[in-house]
Computed example of a mutant assay.
Amino acid sequence: MFDVNDYFDGKVKSLAFTAEGGKATVGVMAAGEYEFGTNCIEHMTLISGQMAVKLPGEDAFRDIAVNETFIVEANVKFQVRIGEDSAYLCLYK
């Protein structure tokens, strides 16, 4: 079945499910800036909208293109800047 996740007063929502190869979420983020923490490696793909990401060790945000995937290491915090309401897919490894 699906689990519903709700973060940042409803500005970020996702549905968790089991995909081929493991856990996954598909979600939406309202325009704004957010910081997330990871428990495992995450492969995040922007499906639609505008996103910039700042990963640990990076000095500045970098733009993510629609259909681009970036990888976040386990047990770190990272920041995203959402320019317009956006959708994403996240695969957990």
Results as ranks from 00 to 15, higher is better:
Val28Met: 12
Glu20Lys: 14
Gly21His: 12
Met44Ser: 07
Ala60Thr: 12
Ala31Gln: 14
Gly21Lys: 13
Thr18Arg: 09
Tyr92Cys: 01
Thr25Asp: 05
Leu55Thr: 07
Arg62Trp: 01
Pro56Ala: 08
Asn39Gln: 13
Glu33Cys: 06
Leu46Ile: 05
Ser48Leu: 07
Glu35Asn: 06
Asn39Phe: 08
Glu35Leu: 03
Asn75Trp: 11
Ala87His: 05
Lys11Ile: 00
Arg81Lys: 15
Met51Ile: 09
Ala16Gln: 15
Ala87Val: 05
Gly10Arg: 02
Ala19Lys: 14
Lys93Phe: 04
Val53Asn: 03
Leu89Asp: 00
Glu73Lys: 13
Phe61Ser: 01
Gly32Ala: 09
Ser48Gln: 14
Asn75Ala: 14
Gln79Cys: 11
Val4Leu: 15
Phe61Trp: 04
Glu33Gly: 06
Glu35Trp: 03
Gly10Val: 02
Ala65Arg: 10
Glu84Lys: 12
Lys11Tyr: 00
Thr38Val: 13
Ile82Gln: 04
Glu42Tyr: 10
Val53Tyr: 05
Arg62Asp: 00
Ala74Trp: 13
Ile64Phe: 05
Thr38Pro: 12
Met1Ser: 09
Lys13Gly: 14
Ser48Cys: 11
Val53Glu: 01
Cys90Leu: 10
Val12Arg: 00
Phe8Tyr: 12
Met44Ile: 15
Glu20Val: 13
Phe36Gly: 02
Gly27Ile: 01
Lys93Val: 05
Ser48Met: 09
Asp63Cys: 04
Glu42Ala: 08
Phe8Glu: 01
Lys11Glu: 03
Val28Glu: 11
Glu68Lys: 11
Ser48Glu: 14
Ala74Arg: 10
Ala24Phe: 12
Ile82Cys: 04
Val26Arg: 09
Asp85Ser: 08
Glu20Arg: 11
Asp63Ile: 08
Glu35Asp: 06
Tyr92Ile: 02
Tyr34Val: 01
Lys77Ala: 07
Val76His: 07
Phe2Val: 14
Ile41Lys: 15
Leu15Asp: 00
Leu46Tyr: 05
Gln50Pro: 00
Asp9Trp: 06
Tyr92Val: 00
Ile71Ala: 04
Tyr88Cys: 08
Tyr7Gln: 09
Lys93Thr: 10
Leu89Arg: 08
Glu73Gly: 13
Tyr34Gln: 03
Lys23Tyr: 12
Ser48His: 11
Met29Ile: 07
Phe70Asp: 02
Gly57Lys: 01
Ala19Gln: 13
Tyr88Glu: 07
Glu73Asn: 13
Tyr88Pro: 08
Phe36Lys: 02
Gly57Glu: 01
Asp59Gly: 05
Glu35Thr: 15
Lys11Thr: 04
Lys11Cys: 00
Asn67Tyr: 04
Leu89His: 07
Glu33His: 08
Ala74Asn: 13
Gly22Glu: 03
Gln50Tyr: 00
Ala19Ile: 08
Asp3Gly: 02
Ala60Gln: 14
Met44Val: 15
